[in-house]
Design a binder for these strands. Structure first.
Lengths: 158, 158
DNA sequence: AGGTTTTTGTTGCGTATGCAACAATAATCT
DNA sequence: AGATTATTGTTGCATACGCAACAAAAACCT
Protein backbone atom coordinates (compact mmCIF):
# COMPACT_ATOMS: atom_id res chain seq x y z
CA UNK A 1 0.00 0.00 0.00
CA UNK A 2 3.01 2.27 0.19
CA UNK A 3 3.50 3.29 -3.45
CA UNK A 4 -0.10 4.51 -3.62
CA UNK A 5 0.02 6.28 -6.91
CA UNK A 6 -2.66 8.95 -6.94
CA UNK A 7 -1.60 11.73 -9.30
CA UNK A 8 -3.41 15.04 -9.17
CA UNK A 9 -5.16 14.31 -12.44
CA UNK A 10 -6.82 11.27 -10.88
CA UNK A 11 -7.61 13.03 -7.64
CA UNK A 12 -9.26 15.90 -9.48
CA UNK A 13 -11.24 13.43 -11.54
CA UNK A 14 -12.41 11.76 -8.35
CA UNK A 15 -13.59 15.03 -6.85
CA UNK A 16 -15.72 15.85 -9.89
CA UNK A 17 -17.01 12.29 -10.05
CA UNK A 18 -17.99 12.39 -6.39
CA UNK A 19 -19.60 15.82 -6.34
CA UNK A 20 -21.37 15.52 -9.66
CA UNK A 21 -22.82 12.17 -8.75
CA UNK A 22 -24.37 13.31 -5.49
CA UNK A 23 -25.82 16.41 -7.09
CA UNK A 24 -27.37 14.53 -10.00
CA UNK A 25 -28.61 11.74 -7.79
CA UNK A 26 -30.27 14.13 -5.35
CA UNK A 27 -31.87 16.08 -8.18
CA UNK A 28 -33.36 12.97 -9.75
CA UNK A 29 -34.62 11.70 -6.42
CA UNK A 30 -36.23 15.06 -5.78
CA UNK A 31 -37.99 14.94 -9.15
CA UNK A 32 -39.28 11.44 -8.48
CA UNK A 33 -40.56 12.44 -5.05
CA UNK A 34 -42.18 15.57 -6.49
CA UNK A 35 -43.99 13.39 -9.03
CA UNK A 36 -45.25 11.12 -6.26
CA UNK A 37 -43.17 8.24 -7.54
CA UNK A 38 -41.02 5.73 -5.64
CA UNK A 39 -37.33 6.31 -5.30
CA UNK A 40 -34.50 4.96 -7.41
CA UNK A 41 -33.87 1.97 -5.17
CA UNK A 42 -37.32 0.69 -6.09
CA UNK A 43 -36.61 1.30 -9.73
CA UNK A 44 -33.27 -0.46 -9.56
CA UNK A 45 -34.74 -3.57 -8.01
CA UNK A 46 -37.75 -3.71 -10.32
CA UNK A 47 -35.60 -3.09 -13.37
CA UNK A 48 -33.14 -5.82 -12.51
CA UNK A 49 -36.06 -8.22 -12.22
CA UNK A 50 -37.42 -6.95 -15.51
CA UNK A 51 -34.14 -7.80 -17.22
CA UNK A 52 -33.82 -11.21 -15.61
CA UNK A 53 -34.92 -14.32 -17.51
CA UNK A 54 -38.44 -15.13 -16.35
CA UNK A 55 -38.45 -11.81 -14.52
CA UNK A 56 -37.34 -13.34 -11.27
CA UNK A 57 -34.17 -13.50 -9.21
CA UNK A 58 -33.00 -14.97 -5.95
CA UNK A 59 -32.84 -12.50 -3.09
CA UNK A 60 -29.10 -12.73 -3.01
CA UNK A 61 -28.70 -12.04 -6.70
CA UNK A 62 -31.13 -9.17 -6.54
CA UNK A 63 -29.31 -7.63 -3.62
CA UNK A 64 -26.10 -7.59 -5.62
CA UNK A 65 -27.69 -6.18 -8.75
CA UNK A 66 -29.68 -3.60 -6.86
CA UNK A 67 -26.63 -2.45 -4.91
CA UNK A 68 -28.06 -3.32 -1.51
CA UNK A 69 -27.08 -5.43 1.44
CA UNK A 70 -29.07 -8.61 1.94
CA UNK A 71 -30.91 -7.14 4.88
CA UNK A 72 -31.60 -3.96 3.00
CA UNK A 73 -33.03 -5.98 0.17
CA UNK A 74 -35.24 -8.00 2.49
CA UNK A 75 -36.84 -4.77 3.70
CA UNK A 76 -37.19 -3.39 0.20
CA UNK A 77 -38.79 -6.59 -1.04
CA UNK A 78 -41.18 -6.46 1.92
CA UNK A 79 -42.41 -3.09 0.70
CA UNK A 80 -42.54 -4.10 -2.95
CA UNK A 81 -44.49 -7.19 -2.07
CA UNK A 82 -46.95 -5.19 0.05
CA UNK A 83 -47.59 -3.06 -3.03
CA UNK A 84 -47.99 -6.23 -5.15
CA UNK A 85 -45.13 -5.19 -7.42
CA UNK A 86 -43.35 -8.46 -6.83
CA UNK A 87 -44.15 -11.83 -5.30
CA UNK A 88 -41.96 -13.98 -3.13
CA UNK A 89 -41.71 -17.54 -4.33
CA UNK A 90 -40.05 -20.38 -2.54
CA UNK A 91 -37.68 -22.50 -4.52
CA UNK A 92 -38.46 -26.23 -4.44
CA UNK A 93 -34.90 -27.17 -5.41
CA UNK A 94 -33.33 -25.25 -2.54
CA UNK A 95 -35.62 -24.56 0.33
CA UNK A 96 -33.44 -21.79 1.74
CA UNK A 97 -33.95 -19.72 -1.37
CA UNK A 98 -36.64 -17.17 -2.09
CA UNK A 99 -37.26 -15.77 -5.54
CA UNK A 100 -38.59 -12.32 -6.17
CA UNK A 101 -40.93 -12.45 -9.13
CA UNK A 102 -41.90 -9.25 -10.91
CA UNK A 103 -45.66 -8.83 -11.37
CA UNK A 104 -47.50 -7.06 -14.16
CA UNK A 105 -48.24 -4.29 -11.72
CA UNK A 106 -44.52 -4.06 -11.09
CA UNK A 107 -43.93 -3.58 -14.81
CA UNK A 108 -46.56 -0.84 -14.82
CA UNK A 109 -44.78 1.01 -12.04
CA UNK A 110 -41.49 0.64 -13.87
CA UNK A 111 -43.12 2.27 -16.88
CA UNK A 112 -44.46 5.09 -14.73
CA UNK A 113 -41.09 5.83 -13.20
CA UNK A 114 -39.04 5.67 -16.36
CA UNK A 115 -40.16 8.88 -18.09
CA UNK A 116 -39.32 10.96 -15.02
CA UNK A 117 -36.07 9.11 -14.45
CA UNK A 118 -35.11 9.46 -18.10
CA UNK A 119 -35.89 13.16 -18.06
CA UNK A 120 -33.67 13.56 -15.01
CA UNK A 121 -30.79 11.70 -16.61
CA UNK A 122 -31.17 13.82 -19.71
CA UNK A 123 -31.52 17.12 -17.90
CA UNK A 124 -28.93 16.80 -15.16
CA UNK A 125 -26.41 14.52 -16.80
CA UNK A 126 -26.68 13.77 -20.49
CA UNK A 127 -27.23 17.31 -21.65
CA UNK A 128 -23.65 18.15 -20.67
CA UNK A 129 -22.08 15.32 -22.69
CA UNK A 130 -21.37 15.06 -26.38
CA UNK A 131 -21.89 11.63 -27.93
CA UNK A 132 -18.13 11.13 -27.97
CA UNK A 133 -17.83 12.11 -24.33
CA UNK A 134 -20.63 9.74 -23.42
CA UNK A 135 -18.91 6.84 -25.13
CA UNK A 136 -15.59 7.73 -23.52
CA UNK A 137 -17.18 8.00 -20.08
CA UNK A 138 -18.92 4.69 -20.50
CA UNK A 139 -15.75 2.97 -21.57
CA UNK A 140 -13.74 4.38 -18.69
CA UNK A 141 -16.27 3.75 -15.96
CA UNK A 142 -17.01 0.30 -17.30
CA UNK A 143 -13.50 -0.63 -16.23
CA UNK A 144 -14.14 0.73 -12.75
CA UNK A 145 -17.40 -1.17 -12.40
CA UNK A 146 -16.03 -4.32 -13.97
CA UNK A 147 -13.38 -4.68 -11.30
CA UNK A 148 -16.13 -5.32 -8.76
CA UNK A 149 -17.88 -7.81 -10.98
CA UNK A 150 -14.66 -9.76 -11.17
CA UNK A 151 -14.09 -9.48 -7.45
CA UNK A 152 -17.44 -11.20 -6.93
CA UNK A 153 -16.13 -14.24 -8.71
CA UNK A 154 -13.96 -16.09 -6.21
CA UNK A 155 -10.44 -16.79 -7.45
CA UNK A 156 -10.37 -19.87 -9.63
CA UNK A 157 -8.01 -22.73 -8.99
CA UNK A 158 -5.97 -22.39 -12.15
CA UNK B 1 -40.03 17.97 -21.79
CA UNK B 2 -41.24 16.11 -24.83
CA UNK B 3 -38.13 16.05 -27.02
CA UNK B 4 -36.16 14.44 -24.21
CA UNK B 5 -33.08 13.48 -26.11
CA UNK B 6 -31.45 10.56 -24.37
CA UNK B 7 -29.48 8.56 -26.91
CA UNK B 8 -28.29 5.09 -26.03
CA UNK B 9 -24.71 6.28 -25.72
CA UNK B 10 -25.72 8.64 -22.94
CA UNK B 11 -27.96 6.11 -21.24
CA UNK B 12 -25.19 3.52 -21.23
CA UNK B 13 -22.81 6.10 -19.82
CA UNK B 14 -25.31 6.84 -17.08
CA UNK B 15 -25.61 3.18 -16.11
CA UNK B 16 -21.85 2.78 -15.74
CA UNK B 17 -21.61 6.05 -13.86
CA UNK B 18 -24.35 4.99 -11.47
CA UNK B 19 -23.19 1.47 -10.81
CA UNK B 20 -19.51 2.26 -10.60
CA UNK B 21 -20.11 5.08 -8.18
CA UNK B 22 -22.09 3.03 -5.71
CA UNK B 23 -19.59 0.22 -5.80
CA UNK B 24 -16.58 2.46 -5.26
CA UNK B 25 -18.35 4.47 -2.60
CA UNK B 26 -19.37 1.39 -0.65
CA UNK B 27 -15.88 -0.08 -0.89
CA UNK B 28 -14.26 3.07 0.45
CA UNK B 29 -16.79 3.38 3.26
CA UNK B 30 -16.13 -0.22 4.19
CA UNK B 31 -12.38 0.42 4.32
CA UNK B 32 -12.86 3.45 6.54
CA UNK B 33 -15.13 1.53 8.88
CA UNK B 34 -12.68 -1.37 8.99
CA UNK B 35 -9.92 1.06 9.98
CA UNK B 36 -12.09 2.44 12.78
CA UNK B 37 -12.33 5.81 11.06
CA UNK B 38 -15.32 8.08 10.55
CA UNK B 39 -17.27 7.96 7.33
CA UNK B 40 -16.91 10.11 4.25
CA UNK B 41 -19.58 12.57 5.34
CA UNK B 42 -17.36 13.54 8.25
CA UNK B 43 -14.42 13.88 5.93
CA UNK B 44 -16.37 15.98 3.47
CA UNK B 45 -17.47 18.44 6.12
CA UNK B 46 -14.08 18.69 7.80
CA UNK B 47 -12.33 19.06 4.47
CA UNK B 48 -14.59 21.85 3.30
CA UNK B 49 -13.84 23.69 6.52
CA UNK B 50 -10.16 23.02 6.02
CA UNK B 51 -10.30 24.67 2.61
CA UNK B 52 -12.33 27.64 3.77
CA UNK B 53 -10.60 30.92 4.62
CA UNK B 54 -10.12 30.98 8.38
CA UNK B 55 -11.24 27.34 8.43
CA UNK B 56 -14.81 28.24 9.21
CA UNK B 57 -18.10 28.37 7.32
CA UNK B 58 -21.70 29.20 8.02
CA UNK B 59 -23.92 26.18 8.55
CA UNK B 60 -25.77 26.89 5.34
CA UNK B 61 -22.62 27.12 3.26
CA UNK B 62 -21.23 24.01 4.83
CA UNK B 63 -24.41 22.10 4.14
CA UNK B 64 -24.12 22.94 0.44
CA UNK B 65 -20.44 22.09 0.21
CA UNK B 66 -20.81 18.92 2.19
CA UNK B 67 -23.76 17.76 0.09
CA UNK B 68 -26.20 17.63 2.99
CA UNK B 69 -29.54 19.14 3.86
CA UNK B 70 -29.52 21.83 6.52
CA UNK B 71 -31.03 19.48 9.05
CA UNK B 72 -28.62 16.75 8.14
CA UNK B 73 -25.77 19.15 8.63
CA UNK B 74 -27.06 20.27 12.03
CA UNK B 75 -26.93 16.66 13.22
CA UNK B 76 -23.50 16.08 11.73
CA UNK B 77 -22.13 19.24 13.32
CA UNK B 78 -23.60 18.11 16.64
CA UNK B 79 -21.49 14.98 16.43
CA UNK B 80 -18.38 16.76 15.22
CA UNK B 81 -18.68 19.27 18.01
CA UNK B 82 -19.12 16.55 20.59
CA UNK B 83 -15.82 15.08 19.38
CA UNK B 84 -14.22 18.55 19.54
CA UNK B 85 -13.41 18.45 15.83
CA UNK B 86 -15.22 21.72 15.26
CA UNK B 87 -16.67 24.51 17.37
CA UNK B 88 -19.88 26.40 16.84
CA UNK B 89 -19.44 30.15 16.91
CA UNK B 90 -22.22 32.70 16.86
CA UNK B 91 -21.89 35.51 14.39
CA UNK B 92 -22.14 38.98 15.91
CA UNK B 93 -23.09 40.58 12.58
CA UNK B 94 -26.07 38.29 12.01
CA UNK B 95 -27.40 36.66 15.10
CA UNK B 96 -29.24 33.97 13.16
CA UNK B 97 -25.99 32.60 11.83
CA UNK B 98 -23.73 29.95 13.33
CA UNK B 99 -20.23 29.30 12.09
CA UNK B 100 -18.56 25.93 12.22
CA UNK B 101 -14.88 26.42 13.05
CA UNK B 102 -12.43 23.61 12.42
CA UNK B 103 -10.22 22.79 15.42
CA UNK B 104 -6.68 21.45 15.45
CA UNK B 105 -8.08 18.12 16.51
CA UNK B 106 -10.33 18.29 13.47
CA UNK B 107 -7.28 18.74 11.27
CA UNK B 108 -5.67 15.74 12.94
CA UNK B 109 -8.66 13.57 12.16
CA UNK B 110 -8.65 14.78 8.59
CA UNK B 111 -5.02 13.66 8.37
CA UNK B 112 -5.88 10.28 9.85
CA UNK B 113 -8.67 9.68 7.37
CA UNK B 114 -6.89 10.83 4.24
CA UNK B 115 -4.40 7.96 3.78
CA UNK B 116 -7.17 5.39 3.88
CA UNK B 117 -9.43 7.48 1.70
CA UNK B 118 -6.62 8.10 -0.78
CA UNK B 119 -5.78 4.41 -0.92
CA UNK B 120 -9.42 3.65 -1.65
CA UNK B 121 -9.61 6.20 -4.45
CA UNK B 122 -6.42 4.80 -5.90
CA UNK B 123 -7.39 1.18 -5.58
CA UNK B 124 -11.03 1.22 -6.60
CA UNK B 125 -11.07 4.13 -9.00
CA UNK B 126 -7.82 5.65 -10.16
CA UNK B 127 -6.06 2.41 -10.97
CA UNK B 128 -8.43 1.88 -13.88
CA UNK B 129 -7.78 5.27 -15.48
CA UNK B 130 -4.90 6.46 -17.63
CA UNK B 131 -3.80 10.03 -17.06
CA UNK B 132 -5.56 11.05 -20.25
CA UNK B 133 -8.76 9.33 -19.18
CA UNK B 134 -8.59 11.01 -15.80
CA UNK B 135 -8.29 14.43 -17.40
CA UNK B 136 -11.10 13.67 -19.81
CA UNK B 137 -13.33 12.43 -17.02
CA UNK B 138 -12.64 15.47 -14.93
CA UNK B 139 -13.39 17.81 -17.79
CA UNK B 140 -16.65 16.08 -18.63
CA UNK B 141 -17.97 15.73 -15.11
CA UNK B 142 -16.92 19.26 -14.25
CA UNK B 143 -19.61 20.39 -16.66
CA UNK B 144 -22.17 18.21 -14.93
CA UNK B 145 -21.24 19.52 -11.49
CA UNK B 146 -20.93 23.10 -12.65
CA UNK B 147 -24.55 23.22 -13.74
CA UNK B 148 -25.60 22.87 -10.12
CA UNK B 149 -23.19 25.51 -8.94
CA UNK B 150 -24.83 27.89 -11.39
CA UNK B 151 -28.29 26.81 -10.36
CA UNK B 152 -27.45 27.84 -6.83
CA UNK B 153 -27.01 31.38 -7.99
CA UNK B 154 -30.51 32.82 -8.31
CA UNK B 155 -31.31 34.27 -11.73
CA UNK B 156 -29.89 37.77 -12.03
CA UNK B 157 -31.99 40.68 -13.13
CA UNK B 158 -30.27 41.33 -16.42
C1' DA C 1 -24.56 -42.03 7.95
C1' DG C 2 -23.17 -38.26 11.25
C1' DG C 3 -21.04 -34.08 12.39
C1' DT C 4 -19.16 -29.71 10.82
C1' DT C 5 -19.18 -25.78 7.86
C1' DT C 6 -21.30 -22.76 4.58
C1' DT C 7 -25.05 -20.39 2.54
C1' DT C 8 -29.57 -18.08 2.59
C1' DG C 9 -32.91 -14.93 4.02
C1' DT C 10 -34.75 -12.58 8.09
C1' DT C 11 -34.74 -9.84 12.33
C1' DG C 12 -33.09 -6.50 16.22
C1' DC C 13 -30.71 -2.69 16.66
C1' DG C 14 -28.16 1.47 15.73
C1' DT C 15 -27.31 5.20 12.60
C1' DA C 16 -27.84 8.62 8.88
C1' DT C 17 -30.63 11.61 6.60
C1' DG C 18 -34.51 14.37 4.55
C1' DC C 19 -38.98 17.07 5.06
C1' DA C 20 -41.98 20.07 7.35
C1' DA C 21 -42.74 22.95 11.21
C1' DC C 22 -40.81 26.18 14.29
C1' DA C 23 -38.63 30.38 16.72
C1' DA C 24 -35.40 33.90 16.24
C1' DT C 25 -33.69 37.29 13.50
C1' DA C 26 -33.00 40.14 9.42
C1' DA C 27 -34.62 42.30 5.17
C1' DT C 28 -38.12 44.54 2.60
C1' DC C 29 -41.91 47.28 1.66
C1' DT C 30 -45.18 50.70 2.28
C1' DA D 1 -41.62 53.49 12.18
C1' DG D 2 -44.52 49.31 11.59
C1' DA D 3 -46.02 45.34 9.26
C1' DT D 4 -44.96 41.70 6.25
C1' DT D 5 -41.85 38.47 4.20
C1' DA D 6 -37.57 35.86 3.86
C1' DT D 7 -33.68 33.51 5.89
C1' DT D 8 -31.20 30.73 9.37
C1' DG D 9 -30.48 26.92 12.18
C1' DT D 10 -32.84 23.50 15.01
C1' DT D 11 -36.18 19.96 16.20
C1' DG D 12 -39.89 16.06 15.69
C1' DC D 13 -40.86 12.66 12.91
C1' DA D 14 -40.46 9.21 9.33
C1' DT D 15 -37.67 6.44 6.38
C1' DA D 16 -33.76 3.85 4.51
C1' DC D 17 -29.97 1.23 5.27
C1' DG D 18 -26.04 -1.72 7.15
C1' DC D 19 -24.05 -4.98 10.63
C1' DA D 20 -24.25 -8.80 13.57
C1' DA D 21 -26.87 -12.57 15.26
C1' DC D 22 -29.99 -16.07 14.10
C1' DA D 23 -32.56 -20.41 12.27
C1' DA D 24 -33.17 -23.29 8.46
C1' DA D 25 -31.30 -25.73 4.96
C1' DA D 26 -27.66 -27.39 2.02
C1' DA D 27 -22.90 -28.77 1.15
C1' DC D 28 -19.01 -30.84 2.62
C1' DC D 29 -16.25 -33.73 4.94
C1' DT D 30 -14.37 -37.82 6.79
Amino acid sequence: MKPNPLPDSHLFAWRKYYVSFWRVFAAIEADLAAAGLPSLSWYDALYELYLAPGRHLRMNELARSALLSRSGLTRLVDKLEKEKLIERRSCPADRRVQHAQLTDKGVDVLRKIWPVYRAGIAQYFAVHLSAAEARELEKTLAKVAEAFALAETPPQKA
